[in-house]
Simulated scan of single mutants.
Amino acid sequence: MSEMVPVDADAVLWSAPADERAGRPLLVLLHGYGSDERDLFGLAPFLPAEFVVAAVRAPLSPPFPTPGWSWYPIEGLDAPGGDAVTTAARSLIDWLDAATPAEGTVGLLGFSQGAAVALQALRLQPDRFAFVVNLAGYVDSGALPTDEHLAEVRPPVFWGRGARDEVIPAARVEHTIQWLPDHVELSGRVYAGLTHSVSQEELVDVRAFLEKQLAAQRP
């Protein structure tokens, strides 16, 4: 079993001070492999202002010379019995338990490895998260005992990916294509010409998705 390393609460970047967060929906940003919390936090000005945004730093250091941080090792990821993605998702959930009230609305937005962790957290606690934005990520192939309940709840998930993304293996993309529609309310796009990155066009679609989720939460 993979050893769980806690998220560094002191490294989290917040869009609002603690005294301005109560009663507002939370959007947690999870960066990709070899990056850090500052990467996706740069998207905050493009996201709906109703959200409190928290950009979390992954807890692991990738092998030299890769810079930044990682949610789980990419070496041996497909080995039988691997649980690295689940361990990373549990670390995220532990941080969330300590950082936010349990009754608040929480959505997750992840890029690449961060998106895989976001989807895994949703699978672990289908009733905890209001939605997930999956940018250039994938669903881990291992089964979880909570998957059946996820398919009953069917929370909204936006999946955006580039037609020229050659970073995520084709087998993981294909598994995600097959798996997500059976378990969530799926929307999203494949962006022509886009590589393993995020485009302005995609950000427009993400904002529209987030605004739709805000509207669904209003009385």
Rank of each mutant, 00 (worst) to 15 (best):
P169C: 06
P101W: 00
E37F: 11
D140P: 08
S199V: 12
A136Q: 09
L96C: 05
A216L: 11
E202V: 12
P181V: 07
H196D: 12
D78I: 02
Q213N: 08
P181I: 04
V206E: 12
L77M: 14
H196C: 11
V5T: 10
E37K: 05
V5N: 04
L203F: 06
S70N: 08
T86Y: 11
L77I: 12
A88E: 02
F209C: 02
E166S: 14
D94A: 15
S61Y: 01
S91A: 14
E211M: 03
G160P: 07
A192Q: 07
V157D: 12
P145D: 07
S199I: 14
A115D: 15
E174L: 10
S35E: 14
G23R: 05
W14L: 13
G81K: 11
A98V: 08
S197G: 15
V198H: 09
S15Q: 14
P145L: 07
G110H: 11
G68Y: 12
P6F: 09
G160Y: 13
S2D: 14
V12W: 03
D205N: 07
A54Y: 01
D83M: 13
A16S: 09
R128H: 05
L60G: 00
Q120S: 10
H175Y: 12
A208H: 08
A98C: 06
H31S: 12
P73R: 05
L203K: 01
R90F: 15
V190G: 01
R154A: 02
R128F: 14
R154W: 09
F158L: 13
P80D: 04
V28I: 05
V53T: 08
Q120E: 13
P45H: 14
E50L: 07
D97A: 10
E103I: 02
P145C: 11
E152A: 06
A121E: 04
A170G: 00
P6E: 09
Y138S: 03
T100I: 09
T100C: 07
S187L: 03
V56H: 01
M4D: 01
V85H: 05
L13T: 08
G107P: 02
A118W: 02
A115F: 07
G68E: 11
V139E: 01
F111K: 08
G188E: 06
L210Y: 05
E202C: 08
E50A: 15
G107R: 01
A79V: 11
V53D: 01
S2H: 10
L180C: 07
G104P: 00
D140E: 03
A151D: 08
V139W: 00
R164H: 00
V53E: 06
Y72H: 07
R24V: 03
R21E: 04
L119Y: 00
Y191K: 01
A11I: 14
A215N: 04
G82R: 15
A151H: 01
D8N: 15
L77W: 03
E103C: 01
D19V: 14
R128L: 09
A171V: 05
V85T: 13
S187E: 04
T87P: 08
P219A: 04
D10R: 08
R189F: 03
G81T: 13
G114P: 06
G82N: 15
F209S: 02
F209I: 01
V139Y: 00
H175L: 04
L119F: 00
Y138D: 00
V28G: 11
Y138Q: 06
F111G: 08
V7F: 09
